[in-house]
Amino acid sequence: MAVLSVEEHEPVWTVYGQSEKFVRTWKVEDMLVGRGPYLVDRVDGGLHRTGVVFASTEERETDYRARIRGPMVLACRSRRVCERVAEE
């Protein structure tokens, strides 16, 4: 898998990838299809695979917060010291 592009968003980086062979040849037959981007959590580094439909929606950050991060938020005292606390 080769990284084609990365988009920076508030809760995550959205990482788009493709097969290494496709990146070298740009031939459609070498392309991976039916895959969405990966989300990399900017706080804990968690890696989450998404689907194609998820990749095409504009509400992916809200969906990520609701499904992956849950009803918790992070309280950060510094860039390196973060803890999960209940959202009030």
Results as ranks from 00 to 15, higher is better:
40 V>Y: 09
87 E>I: 11
47 L>A: 03
81 V>Q: 09
68 I>G: 08
58 E>S: 13
11 P>H: 03
60 R>T: 02
29 E>V: 15
87 E>W: 10
38 Y>S: 01
48 H>R: 07
6 V>E: 02
28 V>I: 15
6 V>R: 04
8 E>F: 01
45 G>V: 07
71 P>N: 13
32 L>T: 04
74 L>K: 05
53 V>N: 09
62 T>C: 08
46 G>I: 06
14 T>V: 15
10 E>A: 07
48 H>I: 07
29 E>Q: 13
71 P>L: 12
61 E>D: 14
8 E>D: 11
59 E>V: 01
19 S>M: 02
25 T>S: 10
4 L>S: 12
15 V>M: 04
68 I>T: 12
15 V>P: 00
29 E>I: 15
38 Y>I: 00
19 S>E: 01
11 P>E: 03
56 S>N: 08
35 R>H: 14
68 I>D: 09
65 R>T: 01
72 M>Y: 15
64 Y>C: 00
24 R>E: 08
62 T>G: 11
12 V>C: 10
86 A>E: 14
35 R>A: 14
47 L>D: 04
13 W>V: 01
84 R>P: 14
19 S>C: 04
80 R>W: 11
29 E>G: 15
55 A>W: 00
55 A>I: 02
15 V>H: 03
30 D>G: 06
45 G>P: 09
22 F>Y: 15
37 P>H: 00
85 V>Y: 03
62 T>A: 13
62 T>E: 14
36 G>L: 05
52 V>H: 08
65 R>A: 02
86 A>F: 09
43 V>A: 07
69 R>V: 03
14 T>P: 04
46 G>M: 14
74 L>N: 10
75 A>N: 07
50 T>S: 11
70 G>F: 08
30 D>H: 07
85 V>S: 05
40 V>P: 00
76 C>M: 05
39 L>Q: 01
73 V>E: 09
65 R>Q: 04
30 D>N: 08
77 R>K: 07
67 R>G: 03
21 K>T: 13
69 R>G: 02
75 A>Q: 08
21 K>G: 04
38 Y>E: 00
10 E>W: 02
20 E>C: 01
1 M>V: 05
1 M>P: 00
47 L>W: 09
14 T>I: 12
14 T>N: 06
23 V>F: 00
3 V>L: 03
15 V>S: 02
22 F>H: 14
43 V>T: 06
62 T>D: 13
88 E>I: 11
66 A>N: 13
28 V>E: 14
26 W>T: 15
8 E>C: 05
7 E>T: 04
86 A>D: 11
27 K>D: 11
47 L>V: 07
31 M>T: 09
38 Y>M: 01
76 C>G: 04
59 E>A: 03
56 S>W: 03
85 V>C: 05
27 K>R: 14
6 V>D: 00
36 G>E: 07
40 V>K: 06
49 R>N: 13
78 S>R: 02
19 S>T: 12
72 M>H: 11
28 V>T: 13
10 E>Q: 04
63 D>V: 11
63 D>W: 10
70 G>P: 06
78 S>F: 04
10 E>K: 09
72 M>K: 12
26 W>E: 10
24 R>F: 05
50 T>W: 08
62 T>S: 13
51 G>Q: 06
37 P>N: 01
25 T>P: 05
69 R>S: 03
55 A>N: 10
81 V>W: 11
74 L>T: 04
76 C>H: 06
24 R>A: 13
42 R>F: 00
25 T>I: 12
86 A>M: 13
31 M>N: 09
46 G>Y: 14
45 G>Q: 14
